[in-house]
Write a protein that binds this DNA or RNA. Structure first.
Lengths: 253, 253
DNA sequence: TAACGCCATTCGGTATTGTGGAATACTAAC
DNA sequence: GTTAGTATTCCACAATACCGAATGGCGTTA
């Protein structure tokens, strides 16, 4: 493991959810020893990629934001945006688009619903794969062994929030998602919020992320959620197509 | 210069605006020689932080997005959001919040106006400091020498778009901005778009970013822009306050 | 078609740089 | 006051990054 990979590991640990971090936590999360993490952090702080509070707490700095701009993701998000607006308009609910980044997904776009309440999400925010509709839509397209890997690492890093999913149960659910084409989050990620999601693929055919429809549980029962499934699925297919994906089933039809 | 700073330089070059980049461009932008950039890129590609098209083009990868999440910026953006909504509601125009990251600023939040058209900006997008309202509001609070440094590096990296500003003229404008408390972008950054902006400070008193109101030039003449100045300025002060800043002038009044 | 120039990529010996265990300084809790 | 758990510094060792030069591939020009 070279020093660049080490610094990336530290940066990932820094940007993990859960406020500022202690040096020891960062060391554990990144798999490095404390002196190395300390040295790397000093370099990151120097360049404003990290911020030290002075009493042993470290947080991601503002310069880290600049790294996220540009790249492929922007094109994909730009293409997706108009589709998200349509989906929001036809359903009235909040719509999200997120891409996978390692063992998490990151929101790239969000269109707020026409309801008086707002979702507590924000572009750039990270979500877990095992307990969100977008996340499960992504997992459903991965080989079983990779799902286990993600699950293992997720459980390891769990900060004692969210329940740990039973592997067998999750695998069964993922099979069902793959069959019907959309996934459901029944208040698993956040209490009182239900979502339905579907996977987005790129030109190479691999799953890169997903889109979802979210609403308060009191306004969106399971029946309605299932009714929205085909809509999300269709919108996701449209985004995939714009990203260069060619659906063979559809192309041959 | 150690290897971590080098990889950060490459990552910044990668995420610079302007689509995929050639290796030679990245080498020049980062100030490194080509073999070093190549080696670093291979490591980044391995971890999905960069993507190689195979024929010499490189783009920022999806994993880079994950680095941006978390950190201070999230708290600040969360606090700012409600103020942005108010500002949009009271003016009807599109409102942005961006933080400085090196020689650029990055949008952290955006509230679309109630007009039929939409701004071509997106959360995560980078803007230049010398030709945008938010950027100039930030520059106006920096020491003159630092402004020159930013300007120099900006001119160097300029990809032949946007006109190069005359230093003396810019300094005079920045003085005026500092006096009246808001900055104006009169179609400098984008044709047909005018903006008015003001700076946001954090608890330490240093400028971290700014907020702005934007609209099509045909619907927003200079007089109206100046009338909006105090509004942006007040909103920026409010955001600053929530970020922990204490305005001595106001506190003593 | 051949020759040129540009650019990405590989190579290799050198020396700079990172490494991590152990020691120390620090802080908070009891 | 003592202890336990930190962050931080130190340093000898060795691994790793470095970069000039060489190679190979590609598109363009005579």
């Amino acid at each position: 493991m070279n020093s660049i990979e080490k610094s990336l590991a530290v940066m990932r640990a820094l940007s993990a959810p859960g406020g500022p971090h202690r040096l020891a936590d960062l060391a554990e999360r990144s798999g490095l020893n404390r002196p190395s993490v300390h040295r790397i952090l000093q370099i990151l702080v120097e360049g404003n990629y990290a911020r030290a509070t002075g009493d042993g707490w470290y947080a991601a700095g503002l310069a880290m934001r600049a790294l996220a701009g540009g790249g492929d993701a922007d094109d994909i998000a730009a293409n997706a945006e108009s589709i998200l607006y349509e989906l929001q308009k036809s359903t009235g609910h909040t719509v999200h688009f997120a891409v996978r980044a390692g063992d998490a997904a990151v929101y790239l776009a969000k269109v707020e619903g026409d309801k008086p309440y707002q979702m507590a999400s924000r572009v750039g925010m990270q979500i877990m794969l095992h307990c969100t509709s977008i996340g499960k839509a992504i997992l459903a397209a991965l080989p079983s062994s990779e799902v286990d890997g993600v699950l293992e690492r997720t459980v390891e890093m769990q900060v004692a929030s969210h329940k740990v999913p039973d592997p067998a149960e999750l695998h069964a659910e993922l099979d069902a998602i793959a069959r019907r084409g959309y996934s459901i989050d029944d208040e698993e990620n956040e209490p009182n919020v239900r979502c339905v999601g579907a996977a987005v693929r790129d030109a190479s055919g691999s799953v890169i992320g997903g889109i979802s429809i979210s609403g308060l549980a009191m306004m969106l029962d399971l029946e309605q959620l299932n009714a929205l499934g085909p809509l999300v699925s269709a919108a996701a297919a449209e985004v995939s197509q714009r990203a260069g994906y060619i659906d063979l089933n559809r192309a041959l039809a």
